[in-house]
Design a protein around this nucleic acid. Structure first.
Lengths: 116, 116
DNA sequence: CGTGAATGATACGGTAGCGAAACGATTCCA
DNA sequence: TGGAATCGTTTCGCTACCGTATCATTCACG
């Protein structure tokens, strides 16, 4: 089954959710960073820089920089792939999981108050 | 009635929608800019710099800069309030309406493919 | 009038993002 | 074993964003 959203509902959901996200004291990530973060936590591992860059349609430095930023926020963690030491495996953290849990709560909360 | 989203659905919806948004050739706005744009188009006018800043919980220069950026993209338009010439009224444009229509389409499209 | 409040824009110094190109480390393979 | 390919990072020059503070314009009100 699908989540049935009408056009006005879809935009209102994003409106209220982004509004709440901006108003919150959560570190404000760029859309690209948020997309990377969601991908890491919602798609089965392993995740590499090259893989993420390809998936998002961006260059590798974009992913490296996003990992730098989010890494210093504790949202993700890097580790070398010991099988092929050229690769970097991006891993999840407790902090990152909590961040996304909070994001999920915001979306759901705003979804409940959508006009029909 | 409300839009019933379960936690995993909420995050998956945002995951696929942000992914599609990043991959698209649409100008990539910051989260704050997107929030401002949605607010202008979904909440009844008039919209002023001060009002938007207060609503979003950000400073006025943030709104001014966002309007500069989105203005040069043609997404919004500024005009003086002739009743009180201190105010600037932010107005919608055809380009902005099309941008949000496209965003709505992306969200709906991704919502249809959500796992139950 | 004219003084103070209110509004939006601007200046400033600093930080972080961008794409393109080059770089070191590692692996592949001939 | 040695050259090419792959992977992630770094560098470069540039643009855009941030918060704080300040500015010009306009209005309200004594």
């Amino acid at each position: 089954m699908s989540v049935l959203l009408r056009p006005s509902q879809a935009l209102h959901l994003w409106h209220s959710a982004t509004l709440e996200l901006v108003r919150s004291d959560a570190p404000d990530l760029t859309l690209r960073q948020l997309s990377i973060l969601l991908h890491i936590y919602l798609v089965p591992p392993p995740h590499t820089v090259r893989g993420l860059a390809s998936t998002l349609g961006v260059t590798k430095p974009v992913v490296t920089r996003a990992l730098d930023s989010m890494g210093s926020l504790g949202l993700v963690r890097r580790s070398r792939d010991e099988q092929d030491r050229r690769n970097v495996i991006i891993q999840r953290t407790v902090t990152g999981a909590l961040y996304l849990e909070k994001l999920g709560d915001i979306i759901i909360e705003q979804g409940k108050e959508l006009p029909l």
